[in-house]
Write a protein that binds this DNA or RNA. Structure first.
Lengths: 127, 127
DNA sequence: CTCGGTGCAAAATATTTGCACATTA
DNA sequence: TAATGTGCAAATATTTTGCACCGAG
């Protein structure tokens, strides 16, 4: 049985209100002012819970895990210059799961795509 | 200037000879018998070097990084049951980079796809 | 000979866990 | 009140770094 908790609500609300795909620590630091007693362990525990409930997405962008409160299907790009992760929305996902299902001898449930390159701002700076 | 080293050759050879997408420590343990003095730090340093040389691929499958010596374009699936990572070869990548380039206001260099589901063996076991 | 590479140990990160206490249903 | 959640500190990974020595070119 999953109960309500102020901390979990706060973690989810914080994540859904921002678009920078924060790490657990980013969220922790962001919540600290309004909730001084919250601990990093609680943030980790709640992120894991929310993820397994399908309410948030974990982006395994290499080292530190980052999270996304937007669970509508979309992809991400990890910027080689600023190390940020930005959204890539595609109207058409190319039916990639269906195509993979035809050639893969197992069960495909979902997929994630991580592009590598430069985000809009860094792209402009680089000319 | 990059020099030759027995250790780097061994790391690359080990990675290319297996298809289980090992972690740095897996490789370290696998090399230990034939090269008792090798250190885990050296494996990490060489994996980073080989990756930036484009000779191997790092798979950010969540927590621990895993590596792949097969640099031909292909995708991966992370098995929810056995936690293994297996290859998913697709003849047609759906032109996903091109499609993304049309809607994304930045620069896309490459992409990786990680499917989630059950590998062939675990799929069969689950019926 | 001169740098890059290595091994080792220690440091830096990132995440998880045990436990006593607080909180929710 | 029964069970889940929390805070704190300690334990676990996981990966990186400083440094003296080794080895390839």
């Amino acid at each position: 049985m999953v109960r309500h908790s102020r901390q979990r609500d706060a973690v989810l609300a914080n994540l859904c209100s921002r678009y920078d795909h924060p790490s657990a620590e980013d969220i922790y630091l962001s919540l600290k002012p309004e909730m001084p007693a919250i601990s990093l362990a609680t943030v980790y525990r709640n992120l894991a819970q929310l993820e397994s409930d399908g309410k948030i997405i974990r982006i395994g962008s290499g080292g530190t895990a980052r999270y996304d409160g937007n669970i509508s299907p979309h992809y991400h790009l990890s910027c080689l210059q600023c190390s940020g992760v930005v959204d890539v929305f595609m109207d058409d996902d190319c039916g990639i799961c269906e195509k993979a299902a035809k050639v893969f001898d197992g069960t495909i449930i979902s997929h994630s795509v991580l592009f590598t390159g430069y985000c809009s701002e860094c792209s402009k700076k680089r000319g």
